[in-house]
Computed example of a mutant assay.
Amino acid sequence: MDATAQPAMIRLSGVGKTYADGTVAVHELDLAVAPGELVCLVGPSGCGKSTTLKMINRLIEPTTGTVEVDGEDVTHGDPVALRRSIGYVIQQVGLFPHQTIETNVMTVPLLYGESRSTARSRAHELMELVGLDAATYAGRYPHQLSGGQRQRVGVARALAADPPVLLMDEPFGAVDPVVRVRLQEEFKTLQRDLGKTVVLVTHDIDEAVRLGDRVAVFAAGGRLAQVATPAELLARPADDYVADFVGSTSGLRRLTVTAIDPDHLEPMDGVNASELAGVVDVGATLEEALAAMLRDDRPMVGVKDGARFVGVLTPTGIHSALRASLVD
């Protein structure tokens, strides 16, 4: 998809940042993010991805170019009003330690003039939405929560003013790996349900592939090396730099972003149920199907579309699907 030709909730046009000592943090770049899209900015440390994110809400002022949010050039507007209208989540969350969880989440609605009762009701609703029981956690303080719980509060606070845009800078980097994966999956579902436009910075290609509708790979000097869907990025890196960044395990990562294709299924005829490693939905990924085979030590998995069996997937079918994705 050529994002520049699509309606955009966020559009960066020639946006760059050069500091007074001549250091180029971000080379002039063009990037458009469609309404409801989640775009991950990924790359090594110092490549300009966090600087790019902060230029969207003008925590860092761009040296060149324009930033549009929902069709409006915000480059020269009121930066404080802009920041209040955009959700912002960072790695260390940034909760106010002396305030309860309820009050932390109420902060932005109160700044907008909401009544305390309306803001409190909204805070409780959002706490439930991110998986925190309001009756249990509303009166607690940040130090009484785990890292994963604090991160959930950070997301709830960012959503409190119902912003159309959410910016996230390494939001899950401070939690342990098991909790991190769970938070990623829960956030992806939440983002899809709410339809928010999200730009998320990460140094982790696995996180970018897992979460992003598209992935923007940054290279040194703040240059945009490639913007593509996860499947396109893994199958067809634009150059050697992107190929090296994606890594030698890109084939395994492609399993996570390649959906089961009915064209690569075999018929159910003559298949004994004891040969099946359970059943997966036709909308599942190849990774989910392969995981079922490995878990149950079976040579194939059944595939259903609703209540209807549509065939079985074997390792040969997985291989065929991966090969087909290289030439699509």
Rank of each mutant, 00 (worst) to 15 (best):
A5P: 07
A5E: 14
A5F: 09
A5L: 14
Q6N: 06
P7R: 09
P7S: 05
P7G: 01
S13Q: 14
V15T: 00
V15A: 01
G16C: 09
K17A: 07
D21P: 08
G22Q: 10
T23Q: 08
A25N: 03
V26F: 01
V26C: 03
V26P: 01
H27D: 15
H27N: 11
E28P: 08
L29G: 00
A32E: 12
V33N: 00
A34T: 12
A34D: 02
P35D: 02
E37Y: 00
L38D: 06
L38A: 06
P44Y: 09
S45D: 04
G48P: 11
G48W: 02
S50G: 04
S50R: 12
S50K: 10
S50V: 06
T52F: 01
I56S: 01
N57A: 11
N57G: 10
I60D: 12
E61P: 04
T63N: 01
E72R: 15
V74L: 11
V74G: 02
T75P: 03
D78G: 03
A81V: 11
V89Q: 10
Q92L: 08
V93T: 11
F96V: 14
F96S: 01
L110G: 04
L111F: 05
T118M: 13
A119R: 07
A123I: 13
E125R: 13
L126H: 06
L132P: 04
D133Y: 05
A134I: 13
A135I: 07
T136E: 15
Y137S: 07
A138K: 11
P142V: 09
Q149V: 12
R150W: 04
G154C: 12
A156S: 07
R157L: 08
A158Y: 00
A160P: 05
A161K: 07
P164F: 07
L167F: 02
M168A: 07
D169C: 09
P171N: 06
F172T: 07
F172R: 08
G173R: 08
A174E: 05
D176E: 12
R180P: 04
R182S: 10
E185P: 03
K188N: 12
T189Y: 05
L190D: 02
R192G: 00
D193Y: 00
K196Y: 00
K196V: 10
L200I: 15
L200R: 10
D204W: 05
E207S: 03
V215K: 06
A216M: 05
A216V: 04
A216P: 04
G222C: 04
L224K: 10
A225S: 10
V227S: 05
V227Y: 00
A231V: 12
E232F: 02
R236V: 12
R236S: 10
P237S: 03
P237Q: 11
D240V: 14
V242L: 03
D244L: 06
T249Y: 09
T249G: 04
G251Y: 03
R253I: 08
R253H: 04
R254S: 09
T256Q: 06
T258G: 01
A259H: 13
E266S: 13
E266W: 06
V271N: 01
A273E: 15
V282Y: 01
L290C: 06
M293H: 08
D296R: 15
D297M: 13
R298I: 10
R298Y: 03
P299R: 06
R308N: 12
F309P: 07
G311T: 09
G311I: 12
V312S: 05
G317M: 10
H319L: 15
S320N: 15
S320V: 14
A324Y: 11
A324R: 14
S325P: 06
L326R: 14
D328P: 01
